[in-house]
Amino acid sequence: MSEPAPPDRVPADDPRHGRLTARAHPPVASAPTGLMPMTGAHGGPLAMAYAPEPATDGTAYRLVVLLHGAGGSARQGLDLLLPVADAHHLLLVAPQASASSWDLIAGGFGVDVRRIDGLLATVFDGYPVREVTLGGFSDGASYALSLGLANGDLVDAVLAFSPGFAAPPVTHGRPRIFVSHGVDDRVLPIDLCSRRLVPHLHSLGYDVTYEEFPGGHEVSTPLRQSATDWLTTPP
């Protein structure tokens, strides 16, 4: 992977910083509920989304942006937490990477940062949102960690299922982090990945909850529930 440009040589609004500019605000339009595609100006697929019915007491959603693994699909990203979305009032958005995996893995933040930022702006226009989480599996977990650490002033939590690395060109804030990894993972071996990554995050002062499990490159139902319980329990 090519080295990112030094932060002091990149304009503050350049997507190579990995900075997201969209911010939550009172909705300006009504938006649908249920499972739905999100498309671009020319009708191309950008993401899949799921919105539970509005809370009867008016409670805003926790928005969770879910990132698929290499070669995966937006629907695979959505399925990471779709089974628990209604019970925990989670508004899910699962972008489709512009290529087979996320831009950072291919050489640096860029087009996918712009895509996610645009999706966030659309969601904030249509839904009341109180917290923002980034999550993902495999390459998507590495991307969620990298983008989340670069945007801790927007993102309050990161879910990283079997990540390979974290490489934010800049960091802001201190989001709390959940990392899981299978001890028999043959795709991203645990000794080379999370067992190095998690201690490094701890050394930088991040609050990291780490779970190893007897399995491979996967997200099991019990693990999904454990991560959701962690996410929805106040720190």
Rank of each mutant, 00 (worst) to 15 (best):
T232C: 15
T233L: 08
L201Q: 00
T228I: 02
P222Y: 06
P199K: 10
W230F: 09
A227G: 11
P234Y: 05
E211W: 14
D229P: 04
T221N: 07
T209F: 14
F213R: 06
A227C: 09
Y210G: 01
G205R: 05
G215N: 05
T209A: 15
H217E: 08
L231S: 02
S203D: 14
D229T: 12
P234E: 12
W230T: 04
G216L: 01
A227P: 11
A227I: 00
G216S: 13
T221F: 03
L204R: 14
Y206G: 02
S203W: 03
G215M: 00
T228F: 00
G205C: 04
L231Q: 06
L201N: 06
P199S: 12
L231H: 03
A227L: 06
S203K: 07
G215Q: 03
T221I: 06
L231F: 01
Y206L: 07
Q225L: 13
D229L: 09
Y210D: 01
E218D: 13
T228L: 00
E212S: 12
W230Y: 10
P235V: 00
S203E: 11
D207N: 13
L231Y: 02
P222G: 02
V219A: 14
L204Y: 09
E212V: 10
V219Y: 14
W230P: 09
L223I: 05
H202R: 15
V219T: 14
H200N: 13
Q225Y: 10
R224V: 09
A227D: 10
T228R: 00
T232P: 11
G215V: 06
G216Y: 11
G216A: 13
T228N: 00
T232F: 10
H217R: 10
P222N: 00
T228D: 02
E212Y: 15
S203V: 04
L201K: 04
L223G: 08
L204H: 14
L201H: 06
W230S: 07
H202Q: 08
V219W: 12
G216P: 04
P234W: 07
V208D: 04
E218G: 09
P234M: 06
H217L: 08
D207W: 05
L223Y: 10
R224A: 05
P235Q: 07
